[in-house]
Design a protein around this nucleic acid. Sequence first.
DNA 1: GTTGATGCAAACTATTTGCAGGCAG
DNA 2: CTGCCTGCAAATAGTTTGCATCAAC
Lengths: 166, 166
Amino acid sequence: MRKTKIERPEEQQRFETFLRSRQLKLTGERLELVEEVFGQPHHFDADQLHMALKQKGKAISRATVYRTLDLLVQCGLVRKSSFGDQYAHYEAVRSDEHHDHLICLNCDAIIEFFRADLEALQEQICREFNFKPMHHSHQIFGLCQACQGKTTDDSVLAHRLSQLNT
Amino acid sequence: MRKTKIERPEEQQRFETFLRSRQLKLTGERLELVEEVFGQPHHFDADQLHMALKQKGKAISRATVYRTLDLLVQCGLVRKSSFGDQYAHYEAVRSDEHHDHLICLNCDAIIEFFRADLEALQEQICREFNFKPMHHSHQIFGLCQACQGKTTDDSVLAHRLSQLNT
DNA sequence: GTTGATGCAAACTATTTGCAGGCAG
DNA sequence: CTGCCTGCAAATAGTTTGCATCAAC
């Protein structure tokens, strides 16, 4: 077997191309961040990412984490969203298909869904308003199947609802 | 004509009832806040409200503004939302009909819309996931009719898009 | 060697909170 | 007169930034 050049995962290559196109530099920190981002199975926030890296011995400063996440969002490898709390949630973009979210107010479960008919209806609405859509954000808050059975404290739920920044 | 008791606008009465039901007090500050909130034609934020009051000689502290807005949200007279920036937007609730928003990334115009078919489709989706919806948040970001004609700086738009916390 | 990147700490922004004095009920 | 309310200032939390140093190209 002949020795081959070490292969970078596709996302790292995409990031590299993006960086080069803007004369930005491919640093070790940036590569490790991309790797960690794509190692995250679900949504995560800046601090979780920072801590996950620290636990693996890669102490990358919070500032760099934020700066790099910003670049990743710009290059389309990461999606940034807000679920009504005061911090940003991120997720690796593994395919081009976007999705919306159902968010459980009791257990914080995040259920992703995609519905072509919903997308189409939105476009129809935009057409009627002569509005050119570029991005959209759609979250439904409530109780997931598992939490509907549980006896939950209504006042806690009500408070959580009223505090939603959405 | 006989002298009648001074009549409070409906929203103040509703607020009063809400406060009494919780043994909270109807203070001058609270009444002036409700009045100002319902005097705002569109969306506003905590700071705008605070400044609008200050300009009218009613210097109510920011802390009280926030505390009262919170009460108004709990009592259903005010809706709180986030449009992808880092602060909360509020609006007076003048009818029970909720609406979603189209938000222009160029001029910040906020266009409200309500579509029964969209609402129905959301409920259908929730049913399929056995999810019990309690609230939802739906914003479409893009360019309003007026701004589609203007020559806008694409890179500014792209940056704005990428910074959206949605 | 340039130019951009990093880490640190300080700055920032929006919002919340503790506390002492004040006012509604 | 009691307990909630207010203003103030300090505290928070998440995120951004200035600056000196360092590394990619």
